[in-house]
Design a protein around this nucleic acid. Structure first.
Lengths: 198, 198
DNA sequence: CGCGTAATTGAAAAGTATCAACACTGGTGG
DNA sequence: CCACCAGTGTTGATACTTTTCAATTACGCG
């Protein structure tokens, strides 16, 4: 697993292109909305009428299982899109999306999203690319998550995101890793102790 | 989690369309290949020059972690495509694909795949759709896998695939669930005993 | 100050992996 | 035809990991 598994996903290339579109003559179809921390942008099992692209800020995409447990699929930041999965199969959303910080978000209504896909080759290509990246990311993360002990996962995360615990709450972290907060704490403590000894 | 999570994936709509293409004037770009059980069709971390669509048979898509553990991403059957993820970002393959039964497979070379995407709107649309379905499937499976005990997972699988153990080896089953064979056996035994008592 | 949410901890219980031994199968070659 | 082999499946005992539960503390904010 030498593959890169970013915890907080971004897609600068896509964001740039959305900005280009926004300032073009057809830019009218791209709205801008805002969200404050804890605000839910889309709910789980809800019909979806638009896609959203993060312009600024940090959000989480999570789903609540029947057992009551939450599982966080991904944290997304600049350039990441959501709501698009549901567009293609007319599904209800399988994730809820919630803001963790103040966010600024582009919003494109369903019908305009379709139009763009049909009429704008570059847009079409970027969406294909980003879907492929999502599949890859999700698949690799699942495999990694199943194959290594908690400690390894935590060490990885800290390497990537040094400010880990200040950015993301312990509760969210635990739900991202699919473990309990108790286990998260114990592992943190073990790591800390071991680091002091050396 | 009332969502449907098929263990063995199929995509009849896509397969039908590939067949239509194959018998059209441009059908020449679609080759047919075969594979026998245990044969590896693509290797992990290999460059990919074509996409493959299953016409008949059953295959598994798995990846080997540094720890030596195998993790099975999915089993695919008729109409499922693989190799496409790597096309869009010019990545090396992150999964190996291996035949479990005799297989017949359509093969479309990279450049022709691109052409189809650009020139055939319906093909383009079907690929978008199928990528979205893959994201959804992978995400839901990950969540489910992390959130429930082994027993629940097994019960689910058996409901879906009654002939489970005759179709898929215990080793593969364990690797699909991300558990050891020992745990798989114990859980099967527990279930069996409990069913006898009632 | 007081409320609610998030974080922390210990002890006990439950779940899973590890390991090592053994059984079953189908194919291979002497 | 039998002995052997490799791969797969099975099991018990044990050690380890993780969750559960409940009790406590810390923190931000009106």
């Amino acid at each position: 697993m030498s593959e890169l598994l970013k915890m907080i996903r971004v897609n600068q290339e896509f964001l740039n292109y959305i900005r280009v579109l926004k300032s073009s003559e057809k830019g009218g179809v791209i709205e801008t909305i805002e969200a404050r921390p804890t605000e839910r942008i889309i709910g789980q099992r809800a019909p979806i009428f638009a896609v959203y692209i993060v312009q600024k800020g940090l959000g989480k995409c999570y789903l609540t299982e029947d057992s009551g447990k939450d599982f966080i699929q991904e944290f997304f930041s600049e350039g990441e899109i959501f709501g698009e999965i549901e567009m293609f199969n007319n599904d209800l959303s399988f994730c809820a999306v919630e803001a963790l910080t103040d966010m600024v978000i582009f919003k494109i209504k369903k019908e305009h999203f379709y139009e763009l896909l049909e009429q704008d080759k570059k847009f079409n290509r970027l969406v294909l690319k980003l879907l492929a990246a999502k599949v890859r990311y999700t698949a690799l993360r699942h495999s990694f998550n199943q194959s290594y002990p908690i400690e390894t996962k935590l060490v990885r995360l800290r390497e990537q995101v040094p400010q880990l615990t200040s950015l993301i709450s312990k509760t969210d972290l635990a739900n991202y890793l699919g473990i309990t907060e108790r286990s998260l704490n114990r592992t943190f403590n073990n790591l800390r102790q071991r680091e002091l000894k050396t």
